[in-house]
Nucleic acid binder design. Sequence first.
DNA 1: GACTTGACTAGAC
DNA 2: AGTCTAGCCAAGT
Length: 103
Amino acid sequence: MTFREAVWQLVRRIPRGRVATYGQIAALLGRPRAARAVGGALRGCPANLPWHRVVNAQGAVSFRGRMSSMLTQRIRLEAEGVVFRRGRVVLRAHAWRRWRGLP
DNA sequence: GACTTGACTAGAC
DNA sequence: AGTCTAGCCAAGT
């Protein structure tokens, strides 16, 4: 299993209405400093993957060459109830917490 | 195997 | 709060 596949597998588990950060994904995979590689893994990912639920550490949508794709990502997130504030996702409210309710 | 390339980040001003 | 910089790392050449 390549790193890229592991990223896809994990991203698939982010629930609707929640977001994860590149660094968070990397950390969950045991590579706390591979945030940048997570971005690379999402480049050319399967179309059915909820890639739009991954944002940067500031809660902002990362630039990917065109403004239109940023807008698409934002629209998709808002469509699932994610709230933006001054151009950033309100992480306090929407950050994916895998361990909620566990020790 | 040695570069190069980014959907990244934390830290320093 | 904005801007720069230096690390980092999997993939593709």
